[in-house]
Design a protein around this nucleic acid. Structure first.
Length: 883
RNA sequence: GGGGGAGUAGCCCAAUAGGCAGAGGCAGAGGACUUAAAAUCCUCCCAGUACGGGUUCGAGUCCCGUCUCCCCUACCA
């Protein structure tokens, strides 16, 4: 029977918190709501309740936020700390297809399991605010927000080529397809044109980019979003396709370039193989080659394209584009038009002008196919030669009086071989060229984004239905707000109805709707993607029971924005960008009061695991390795294996189950371990050997409250009487309070725990002597955010009947932090020679410091000249002497 | 190729604004308690901060260069 009986302690307090609703958080309008208190909204990424249950990676972030939530409560704030379920999604639907179990059933089971697991961690959520994205009471408002987007003209239908995954029976967004395989499951995907709902996130690109500036987010996440949005400034230039005679023909295309300054160096153009103009301009002789190339390109997945990346390929169309800078007789006027798969139809205009003298990709292509290369930017030192137009004449390429170079230069410099731009800097040349083009209506400055509109529909059953009706003649209307939610129909079979018909199409009764005028409509049979529900869940938490509105204005005003959001790095672009987009739309509609949802963001690190590599570099499942030996060896043959750090994976059988840890050590130990591993932001491997360390700390803590002789858990008599503690312990406690307070504020939970260990070691050293009641109580408050069950138990045994969750945070006295005399290191020429002791209060007096220091290093100063004395108040003294 | 981050003891990690390299934990050694073991407690051991320069009275911390590792992204015109 362990003296510190964590199992019974933890279940007792978990029941207590649930029964007493200790963490219920009243909001504006609720009884017991105190509007005078400051608020703190601390948010976790709500999980997808998978069948696999909780992973030890989840509690890392959840513990960090829970510590913050509990700490903020001790500061007297109203703390909003909710949890819910992002429960729509493919796995439940796949399971339904295989077994016939309704996804709602699977989901409910998984949610129950997750909730139990989270509650077993002692997380201080207000469970009355639990939300579930699959609950019609929730998705009714998801549909309502969609209607807002629709009203704003931000939702539209389009027939576009999309990634279709045969295996999953659905389309996927670009970002859900990696190298031609689905992100989930790794199934092959192909491009197919399909009618889809799109959200016009590109309309917000500029603001999504600019507003990153003021967010207290990790630089890495901001950088990823910036790259994802991919703003680039340049110009759009119209090129006419030449007739055989050389004059401008009927065809023309737009090319986007970031380097309009280099137009004088454009020697050819490339269209994406899919470019619609290709059919019309391809010459008779080139027809066959072009067709073959286009078919090859179409059948290539992105994976294959990138594998072949090093070598550029393409074919000539037979047509030429006209470079508007040059007169009819100038050989540089006609630029051959090629098609090549390094130009993507989906970016810019799907057509480029190629300047091989200044762009590595164009240069590679030009070298491959023997196209001319002209230098238009010279590095600065060569500027003396500019403008230098009349140099070599290249017969081979017929480029006129322009030097043909064999290098590509894309660095800074001055314009050469560029007519009216010669001698200008790149920046000046860009703006002059844009002016030149705009005056002639041949082009204009343009900002282009990598960000595409958001593909917002899926061909799935287990997602939010669209509140959309289609008429016979192709007209579309919203389901009126009062008729929401549009609930999912019951189905027996969740498979797609046909190759391209979503499963919802199977529900005939549901699909057909007759309105008051007897007109027949068909419901939209696509459903929304999983991101929809997670785009606004943080808003529903503000007012989760509200049946009149998605959230109340007062609640929104009081609680928003989220003060602290802890998410894994995997959400850096998608979830966080989509949520910001919706939030800005809601802001523009006057429905929320802040233009950004998440003020401070922290990326939690990964919890990794050890893995072992044999001498051939192959990874071994952990159960084939004996970890007790040093080095670890393979069980089968005793060969030494190398320990490495890897992601937890089923294949390596190194996944840690939190339930097992709780059973063996308790959830306070699990919490403490997760927080003690290192900074929240850092990734670190799970090391089972380290668990006993933090567990011992809790046992020692128990021991300083409860005497050894008494297994019943009676507390030290001295702690029950009001005996004052010793001065040494009081000082140690003040140091501990100071350290824990400053650390926990900045999520330095690992060092805060170290400070508490130090304190408990100090008390232990005195065998419980001199530990006073008030000291014990203050320590309980410090401990509570980290090990809440034990802290509550000790608090209770000190004679309190109420939870300590709302006890004020203890204060420290600066005067108690200093010892009676201060130790000051004394250096001679930067080398530590001795230590001086200065009475407390005088450590900032340079004269005192120097005098005390001189005494202790007197022998080092004999016979040498002291050139300088550096005395840092309270820190050290350094004598600089002539050597 | 581009971007972000990190290298401190056998391991995980500390070290406010440059100021004694070590707070804490693990592992290891020795000891106390015990019939024994476990548990618990005490004591000890261990690096000069990836490498090379520089600035400074003084550098883990600042500057320059190099190396290694992790994450993201990748023909974006």
């Amino acid at each position: 029977m362990p003296r510190y009986d964590f199992t019974s302690i933890e279940s007792r307090w978990q029941e207590y918190w649930q029964r007493e609703k200790t963490f219920r958080t009243p909001g504006p309008g609720d009884a017991n709501f105190d509007a005078s208190k400051p608020k703190y909204y601390v948010l976790d990424m709500f999980p997808y309740p998978s069948g696999a249950g909780l992973h030890v990676g989840h509690p890392k972030g959840y513990t960090a936020t829970d510590i913050m939530a509990r700490y903020q409560r001790h500061l007297g704030k109203n703390v909003l700390h909710p949890m819910g379920w992002d429960a729509f999604g493919l796995p439940a639907e796949q399971y339904a297809i295989q077994t016939g179990t309704h996804p709602a059933v699977t989901t409910a089971e998984n949610v129950d399991r997750f909730r139990n697991q989270l509650q077993a961690l002692g997380l201080s959520y207000d469970w009355d605010r639990e939300v579930n994205t699959t609950d019609p009471k929730y998705y009714r408002w998801t549909q309502w927000i969609f209607s807002k987007l629709y009203e704003q003209g931000l939702a539209y239908e389009a027939e576009i080529p999309v990634w279709w995954c045969e295996e999953l029976g659905t389309v996927l967004a670009n970002e859900e397809v990696i190298d031609g395989l689905s992100e989930r499951g790794g199934h092959p995907c192909v491009k197919r044109p399909l009618r889809q709902w799109m959200l016009k996130i590109t309309a917000y690109a500029e603001r999504l980019l600019a507003d990153l500036e003021n967010l207290d987010w990790p630089e890495s996440v901001k950088a990823m979003q910036r790259e994802w949005i991919g703003r680039s400034e340049g110009a759009e230039i119209e090129f006419s396709v030449a007739k055989d005679s050389g004059g401008a023909g009927d065809h023309a295309f737009m090319a986007f370039t970031t380097r309009p300054d280099t137009l004088f160096g454009a020697t050819f153009c490339v269209l994406a193989p899919e470019h619609p103009l290709v059919d019309q301009i391809t010459g008779v002789d080139q027809k066959e080659a072009v067709t073959v190339y286009r078919e090859a390109a179409a059948s290539k997945t992105d994976l294959q394209r990138s594998e072949l990346q090093k070598e550029k390929s393409g074919v000539f169309t037979g047509a030429h584009a006209i470079n508007p800078l040059f007169e009819e007789d100038d050989p540089r006027r006609l630029m051959p038009i090629w098609i090549a798969d390094y130009v993507l139809m989906s970016y810019g205009t799907g057509a480029i002008m190629c300047v091989p003298g200044g762009d590595q990709r164009d240069y590679d292509f030009a070298t491959e196919y023997g196209l001319p290369v002209v230098q238009v930017v010279a590095p600065k030192p060569l500027a003396v030669n500019a403008p230098g137009v009349d140099r070599a004449f290249d017969v081979t390429h017929g480029m006129g009086s322009v030097e043909i170079v064999t290098e590509c230069y894309s660095g800074p410099g001055v314009m050469v071989n560029s007519g009216f731009l010669d001698g200008l800097s790149i920046e000046e040349a860009k703006s002059q060229m844009v002016d030149w083009l705009e005056k002639r209506d041949l082009g204009r400055g343009r900002v282009n984004f990598r960000l595409r509109d958001w593909l917002f529909s899926r061909q799935r059953y287990w997602g939010e239905p669209f509140p959309i009706l289609h008429g016979k003649d192709g007209e579309t209307q919203m389901v009126p707000n009062e008729d929401l939610p549009v609930t999912l129909p019951e189905l027996d079979d969740f498979k797609p109805a046909g190759a391209l018909e979503p499963p919802l199409g199977r529900a005939q009764d549901w699909v057909e709707v007759v309105d008051a005028d007897g007109k027949v409509w068909r419901r939209e049979t696509n459903s929304m993607p999983q991101w929809a529900g997670s785009c606004w869940y943080y808003l529903r938490f503000l007012d989760p029971q509200n049946d009149e509105a998605a959230w109340g204005e007062k609640a929104e005003n009081y609680w928003m924005p989220v003060d602290l959001y802890v998410v894994g790095a995997e959400h850096a672009v998608l979830h966080l960008l989509y949520a910001r987009f919706w939030h800005k739309v809601l802001y523009d509609c006057g429905l929320v009061s802040t233009d950004e949802p998440f003020q401070e963001l922290v990326n939690q690190g990964m919890v990794q695991s050890f893995a072992y590599k044999d001498d051939r570099g192959a990874l071994l499942p952990i159960d084939e390795v004996d970890e007790e030996t040093d080095p670890a060896v393979r069980k089968s043959d005793g060969a030494a294996v190398e320990r490495i750090v890897a992601k937890m994976s089923k294949a390596l059988r190194n996944v840690i189950n939190p339930d097992d840890v709780i059973r063996e050590y308790g959830s306070d130990t699990l919490r403490l371990y997760e927080a003690f591993m290192g900074p929240v932001t850092a990734s670190a491997p799970w090391n089972p050997r380290d668990l006993p360390g933090v567990h011992r700390f809790l046992q020692r803590t128990w021991r300083v409250f409860v005497p050894k002789e008494d297994d019943g858990g009676e507390i030290f008599a001295s702690l029950l009487s009001n005996v004052a503690g010793s001065d040494e312990i009081e000082r140690a406690l003040h140091r501990c309070i100071e350290k824990v307070s400053s650390d926990v504020k900045q999520m330095g939970n690992n060092t805060a725990i170290a400070a508490m260990m130090e304190f408990v070691n100090e008390v232990t050293k005195r065998e419980g002597q001199g530990f006073g009641r008030s000291q014990a109580e203050r320590f309980c408050v410090l401990l509570e955010p980290f090990a809440p069950h034990l802290a509550e138990e000790l608090w209770f045994r000190l004679g309190h009947v109420e939870s300590l969750a709302y006890e004020p945070w203890p204060e420290f006295d600066l005067n108690m932090l200093v010892a009676e005399s201060i130790e000051i290191p004394v250096q001679v020429n930067g080398k530590l020679r001795a230590k001086a002791f200065v009475p407390a209060g005088q450590e900032n007096d340079r004269a005192v410091l120097e005098e005390s220091a001189r005494e202790v290093v007197a022998e080092h100063l004999i016979g040498v000249e002291v050139k300088k004395v550096v005395a840092v108040p309270g820190r050290l003294v350094n004598f600089v002497v002539a050597s």
